Amino acid sequence: MSHTAHIRSHRKPRRSASRVAMRAGVAGGVLGTLAVAGSSASANAAEPVTQTLELPTLTADLAAQVAQSADATEQAAANYRLGAERDAAAAKAAKQAKADLADAKKKAEARKKAAEAARKRAAARAAAERASRTTDRPTLSASVGVGSTSTSVSTATGSAAAVISFVKAQVGKAYVSGATGPSAYDCSGLVQTAFKQVGISLPRVSQDQSTAGTQVSLSNLQPGDILYWGGAGSAYHVGVYVGDGMFVGAQNPSTGVVERPLSYDPPSGAVRVL
């Protein structure tokens, strides 16, 4: 033992185990705190770097999304405008079509009225011409059957007989405009077909048939002569004189092919081709 051991002030105090442990714990806690603080400081110091590296990627994605949204909005607006323009065009076209239809109906009605008026005028002219012919030739009907030998008692022979036989055989058949037989005829179709039986080729229409042969007087008719109504070259009807003051013709849709006396509808003139 030291010679100063018995003096209290020079004796080294003994540290208790609990105080040493406590101090060690405190020191450890401080060091742990510093470590955590350091780690946190390091993490906080590194965080801006990490955010700075990721920011361009996020910004580019966001810009792309914004651009896509803008494109979609613009496309939607364009589609809306296009649809509106189409609707407007369709409405305008429908309105124009309706107006055109109404105009077409008016024009058709006007044409119909004009055609009806023309038909009535033509019928009136024909009636006037018939009345005029009756007035101008009063002796024709009186001479039929009792007049000159040429119109009353002539007997057809040869080609004339064949023509007369043919037209009489068609009596009772229908009148059809443009028809040339065998079941129906119009007036010039009957005449053309009749003379075709004897090898004579005549024009197809009344106007041309009225100038196809030699003009003859109505007072000097012979069986087989072609009768015409209207002017020579502008005749509107033809028939065949069959003798004894009679003629055969395809008159109209109501009567068909008939045999009638000249007084029934006195002709304007006649031509001879036989």
Rank of each mutant, 00 (worst) to 15 (best):
T4S: 09
R8G: 02
S16M: 08
S16Q: 12
A17M: 04
R19W: 10
M22E: 09
G25H: 08
G32D: 03
T33G: 15
L34A: 15
V36M: 15
G38L: 15
A41R: 06
A41I: 05
N44M: 14
A46H: 10
E47Q: 14
P48K: 10
T52F: 10
T59L: 13
A60F: 04
A64W: 02
A77Y: 10
A78C: 00
G83D: 07
R86C: 02
K95F: 13
K105V: 09
K107R: 15
K107A: 13
A114K: 08
R119P: 00
A124I: 05
A128D: 08
E129Q: 13
S132E: 14
T135S: 12
G147V: 01
T149S: 15
S150N: 06
S150M: 02
T155M: 04
A156I: 04
T157W: 03
G158R: 08
V167S: 05
K168T: 12
V171I: 15
S177P: 00
G178S: 08
A179Y: 05
T180M: 13
T180N: 12
A184K: 05
Y185E: 01
Y185C: 04
Y185V: 04
K196W: 04
P203S: 08
R204D: 03
R204V: 03
V205N: 13
D208E: 13
G213S: 07
Q222S: 11
G224H: 12
D225F: 09
D225W: 09
D225T: 11
L227P: 02
W229V: 01
S234M: 03
Y236R: 08
P253G: 06
R260W: 09
R260Y: 10
Y264S: 11
V271T: 06
V273P: 03
